[in-house]
């Protein structure tokens, strides 16, 4: 898709203190591997998202370093242990230096 990569994030709205929750993330991105050729036979330059991170209230939760073998529209599913209410922050770093971000609040009782 030509439009700017758009993240989608799924985090439960509420959780119990100390509970381990499931987080899912998806972002629209071609993940151009740098291996494909165009119609003239020229290599299409690599352009991927190379890093994904998830933080909770400023603390690292999970991250992933990516290579071109990650599929287009990168998807992640992972866990997080939530001690208190707060904010999840997600970021995706593009080869061209762009950073796409999203935030989600969670109420912990």
């Amino acid at each position: 898709m030509a439009a700017k990569p758009k993240p989608r994030v799924k985090v439960p709205k509420t959780a119990k203190a100390g509970e381990t929750i499931v987080i899912k993330t998806l972002i629209s991105h071609k993940m151009e591997s740098g291996q494909r050729k165009d119609k003239e036979g020229k290599i299409i330059p690599r352009k991927i998202i190379n890093k994904f991170t998830c933080e909770f209230n400023g603390e690292p939760v999970f991250s992933c370093d990516m290579d071109p073998a990650i599929s287009a529209n990168p998807y992640f599913e992972f866990r997080a242990k939530v001690p208190e209410s707060g904010m999840f922050k997600f970021s995706w770093v593009d080869d061209d230096g762009s950073v796409y971000t999203d935030e989600q609040k969670i109420e912990v009782s």
């Binding site: 898709m1 439009a3 989608r8 799924k10 899912k24 998806l26 629209s28 287009a72």
Partner: peptide
């Protein structure tokens, strides 16, 4: 419906 990448296009269509 979350894992389905087609939903990215639904969102784009809404825009």
């Amino acid at each position: 419906s979350f894992q389905n990448s087609g939903m990215l296009y639904v969102e784009r269509g809404q825009e």
